[in-house]
Design a protein around this nucleic acid. Structure first.
Ligand SMILES: [Mn+2]
Ligand SMILES: [Mn+2]
Ligand SMILES: [Mn+2]
Ligand SMILES: [Mn+2]
Lengths: 227, 227
DNA sequence: TACTAAAATTAGGTATGCCTAACAATTAAT
DNA sequence: ATTAATTGTTAGGCATACCTAATTTTAGTA
């Protein structure tokens, strides 16, 4: 049986190898977990001996098949809790992550099933991230960065690429939330920032850094936006 | 700020000094927590230095005013989670305790408030135990042991005095649950066991050991049952 | 009161999960 | 190719939360 403290590592490794899909280095993992490299090295050796991961200095850290399955299970629990907290308990999308970190440790598949049902058997969490099914399969989504939009594109927010409170609160201030419809009025070729219209003709200019992290899908068919 | 591991101790001490309202001994506490006395002694010293409890070998362990307040807060969290699990997540009353033990460690007053509201701001948990309010005040209940009933008494189940799965599953097998109406057909003076009628004229003979642990209140006013 | 059983304490030990400081190896830059 | 910076590794230590075995204290009983 896997331990809670292992799950933390597996989820971290999963995220790091997902984002930047190249090898995960020791120091990277240490930084992500807010721990020091010797600490992490120690645990990595253990995780390796338990066959959850492989590690070679040159090759970095990789999840094994079993490790990935376990990681996806933690991701599943995390995202189901986030969804439950948002939909049923009415927490904002910037509050759910931290709480879910605690709740995901609770050890009861039956409880996960129940809150999953209570939340309406969702496919995506409040940040738009896909919820793996029990076998670890991820639902596919059309999401692409808002940054790839062309002038005139009408699209809808499916999620975000970053969980940080600073970012989420910024969006909340702008009143940009999940399922918000956005019209890309103009893309400024200079730096890629874009003027967006939404709600009752509110409008805002988003920096490319922000636009890159907002995930959308076009509403009109055959929209010429890049993916 | 109090630590999760301290809360476990405070709740245990609270229960032990509640049940048998005399002093709580070290070995008693150790047994309850399923730990060895030296382990517990160590922690007791710490808890004492942190002013949650007092301890003198002769006098046993006592919660301080602050300690009791903290203990009541854990009890509150525990019972709210139990209620939520039962009412909203449809867990049976024998399943909720163990899960609540895990969930009560989650650190968010806001979350407790939300699930409390979701559960319909209950005053009692699925075992009939009172849920303290935020200031630590307990709602009063009319509960008395079924054992104190006289022949012919009509009463309703308000709770139980024991959380063990063996006991709860026994009641579940008999289909005796919360709010079940019971008629005491006959009390056998020999040993105090009693014949009970309930539901569609089902009937059963309960041993005094069981009857003592079922908490009820009389339905008819001026019922001559003892309290 | 003296003896015995139970409870409390002390001493010393283990596993886990974290750390710093010092050193080695690798990779990037001049 | 040499140097500098980054990354990984080793060694040794600390705190927490447990344990057993041995001893002391207290309380119950004869
Ligand atoms: Mn999250
Ligand atoms: Mn999420
Ligand atoms: Mn309970
Ligand atoms: Mn209860």
């Amino acid at each position: 049986m896997i331990k809670t403290s292992d799950e933390k590592y597996l989820r971290a490794i999963y995220h790091l190898s997902e984002d930047k899909n190249n090898k995960v280095s020791l120091s990277e993992l240490a930084y992500y977990l807010d721990l020091k490299p010797p600490t992490v090295l120690e645990r990595v050796h253990v995780l390796q001996s338990e066959k959850w991961i492989t590690y070679k200095k040159t090759d970095g850290i990789h999840l094994t098949k079993t490790g990935e399955k376990e990681a996806l299970n933690v991701v599943r629990k995390h995202r189901i809790w986030e969804t439950f907290l948002h939909k049923i308990c009415k927490f904002s999308w910037s509050e759910v992550h931290e709480l879910a970190e605690q709740l995901q440790n609770v050890n009861s598949e039956k409880l996960i099933d129940r809150i999953y049902d209570l939340s309406g058997t969702p496919k995506f969490d409040p940040h738009g991230d896909p919820i793996p099914d029990k076998s670890g399969k991820l639902p596919v989504s059309e999401r692409r960065p808002l940054l790839n939009s062309v002038d005139g594109c009408k699209c809808v927010v499916l999620g975000v690429n970053e969980d940080s409170n600073e970012f989420l609160n910024y969006l909340t201030d702008l009143k940009i939330g999940l399922n918000e419809k956005l019209i890309v009025e103009k893309v400024f070729v200079f730096d890629g920032s874009m003027k967006i219209k939404y709600r009752n003709n509110e409008s805002v200019i988003l920096s490319p850094k922000v636009a890159e992290k907002i995930q959308v899908t076009c509403i009109k068919p055959n929209c010429p936006c890049k993916n």
